[in-house]
């Protein structure tokens, strides 16, 4: 299978063409102009991850919500599952910067932490 993608490792944005076999293993990367591009293509095809940011409802805070993020990038395919958990969570004020608001979200082993005070 052939996959096309834009490398986002730097602003040049090379068009990458990635050749994969049936086991989703990378056979070749073309179009990259540096080593980072090749690694980006391999990561994107084998284990794409993303930082997820959102808000969590707060009871009794100055504002109705507090911004949060995943402590580390999570698998791209789990973003919407994680959003469901985040949107069904309500925490009590006060919330401090860096507080863990949800532990081990969706079995990823990664926590959801507050990125502001409230």
């Amino acid at each position: 299978m052939i996959k096309e993608m834009v490398c986002v490792s730097c602003p040049i944005g090379c068009m990458l063409t990635v050749e994969l076999n049936d086991q989703n293993e990378v056979l070749s990367v073309k179009g990259n102009t540096c080593k980072r591009g090749e690694q980006y293509a391999i990561d994107e095809c084998t284990n794409p991850v993303r930082m997820l940011t959102s808000t969590v409802k707060v009871n009794g805070g100055k504002l109705p919500v507090v911004p949060v993020k995943t402590a580390k990038p999570i698998p791209k395919g789990k973003m919407f599952d994680c959003m469901q958990v985040i949107n069904s969570t309500v925490v009590d004020a006060p919330v401090k910067m860096g507080d863990v608001l949800i532990q081990d979200i969706c079995g990823t082993g990664i926590d959801i932490i507050a990125t502001n005070e409230n």
Partner: peptide
């Protein structure tokens, strides 16, 4: 916009 945002906000 930045290429990173095109990829991660739209293409994704």
């Amino acid at each position: 916009g930045l290429t990173r945002n095109i990829v991660q906000c739209l293409d994704d």
